[in-house]
Amino acid sequence: MNRFVAKSIVIGVISFWMIVSASASYAEDTVVFENAEFNHQCFKCHGQKTYHYFNEASGKVVKDRMNPYFVMDSIAFYQSNHKSFMCTDCHSSDYENFPHNGELRMEQKFNCMDCHGGDDTYAQYQFERIEEEFQASVHSTKHSDEFTCWMCHNPHSYKINARNNDNINNVIVYDNNICLSCHANLDKYQLISDLTNPNVLITHEWLPNQALHFSKVRCIECHTEIDKEMLIAHKVQVKEKAVRRCVECHSQNSLLMATLYKFETAEKRNKLGFFNATILSDHYIIGANRNYYLNIASLIIFGFVLLGITIHAIIRIMTK
């Protein structure tokens, strides 16, 4: 076989492999949303910072700015839990007409429980218990009815996170950003409160290694009442009841195993003898990640040292 033929075969095989891989990944990645075409009528304007409309009075096409609070991120929407929805599943079908009727702004918004409550399809998510916990939480008891699920869970972008995410760091960032969307954003915070927005950096000044704690655990780990039956605790407590004792996490029975790490598989636990081993791939918590075998080995070594010293001392005394 001459060199040209050999080269051609190699290049041919590589090209074939690349084409097959590319088409396979295209097939896997491409998801068609059945309502995308319909929703595009809305995203045409509400997915952009500017929109066009025909002004009958002037007889001209006008380009105008979209109210930034009404701009929706279509990519985030099609990655969210509600990605298969039509916009008019939740909003009035009268929005199909433009200009929109001004009175439509007064439409009653759905709450989570309007769709998810009392439905066996969603029983595993325990929406009724979540509702109970939320009603007992400081978010509900200290604020008006304006504080709804939507304050934290944006219906246009919220997606189930902790259960589906392999990277615990991404889970922490996503969940903490939900809290910070109010607690680090005065505009949104004052929608429901006249209080001055507390600065979380100052209120947590007592916390050692603050930056590390903020990036490695979620706010809800310390600020909610843990219920082992719940997937995600929703009973946010008054600040006086927040976890402040280091040993609640920094111990063998770390509460983090009932919260942040509860979705990790049980098989991962005690890997190589480490207590709470599931934490170890990304993190290390003093007091929570002791190693059973190292504990035993250190006790044996220490025992032998003390025994050796004792025997040596006894023989010294006896042969004095």
Partner: peptide
Amino acid sequence: SLQYSSVEFSFIDFDLAV
């Protein structure tokens, strides 16, 4: 004290020990 910290008993309080 830090390595063997526990909710039930701590030799020295965790934050003081740190």
